[in-house]
């Protein structure tokens, strides 16, 4: 029996005015797989994630979740089994850290009691290496790395089966970036979740990816297992992973 991809993108097109960002993305992510999407700025990585989530609506093509068209599935049910770490963590600055982490539990149709929600938040914070004292601070009182960890704790608060990571190491020092990468790998393996990460950071690719897809010109330029990436002959991929200024990808000097 052929396994059904957890997430499949079929000929995805998306434009903003005259700017065609996605021009036919085809991609499959199998259950339990960690896919890392790489590509230069403005190649449509974030837009691809937003189309999968339904935050942006594609102009053409489809998003299949468990083999079913995303427009016909129960979107709330899908989002309930979903977590996301945003580039800037996107924590709610008017709420305490524990209220951010337990947001879903506090605002569910049948909300969890505050004491239980706080305990759950503290256990998730400890999972990402933050102490219980952090729980009663506001996000603005935390460093960038700690905010990312809180965002990670919020993303895994409901033990989701699908997790997206948008530039998880952007703006972090190399040590903190390494910590976040390791945490992502551990959490994804531990929970058996399907993960999509978008990044420019090749260290993240090495540590987090099972499969890699490179976007360029609104399409998937190269895709394959992470182990094949270094031996691949695609000139676009080669230029990107080696950070060369010369090659088929145009650069501004």
């Amino acid at each position: 029996m052929v396994a059904v991809p957890k997430i499949e993108l079929v000929d995805l097109h998306k434009s903003f005015g005259n700017n065609a960002v996605l021009t036919g993305i085809n991609l499959r992510v199998m259950p339990g797989e960690s896919l890392v999407i790489i590509g230069g700025s403005g190649t449509g990585k974030s837009v691809t994630l937003k189309c999968i989530l339904g935050i942006e609506r594609q102009d053409r093509g489809g998003v299949l979740i468990d083999g079913r068209d995303s427009t016909t599935i129960d979107r709330r049910a899908f989002l309930r089994s979903f977590g996301m770490l945003f580039q800037g963590a996107a924590l709610f600055d008017s709420m305490l850290v524990w209220q951010n982490v337990a947001f879903r539990h506090l605002h569910a149709r049948r909300p969890m009691k505050r004491t239980a929600a706080r305990e759950l938040a503290i256990s998730k914070l400890s999972r990402v290496g933050l102490s219980a004292e952090t729980a009663d601070l506001f996000p603005a009182e935390l460093s960038g790395g700690m905010q990312k960890r809180v965002g990670l704790a919020r993303a895994i608060a409901t033990d989701p089966s699908v997790i997206f990571f948008d530039e998880p190491t952007a703006g972090l020092d190399p040590i903190m970036a390494g910590v976040i990468n390791d945490l992502i790998r551990e959490l994804v393996s531990e929970m058996g979740a399907t993960a999509i990460t978008i990044t420019h950071d090749m260290t993240t690719v090495d540590r987090v990816a099972d499969h890699v897809a490179m976007l360029h010109g609104g399409q998937v330029r190269w895709t394959g297992p992470v182990a094949d990436m270094t031996t691949a002959t695609d000139p676009w991929l080669d230029q990107f992973i080696n950070g060369r200024a010369t090659g088929p990808i145009e650069t501004l000097r």
Partner: peptide, 18 residues
């Protein structure tokens, strides 16, 4: 700007309602 509204959507919460 800081994607908190998008974050609400991913947390199964309708931003208009909330």
């Amino acid at each position: 700007v800081t994607e908190q509204i998008d974050a609400l959507t991913t947390l199964s919460t309708n931003p208009v309602k909330f």
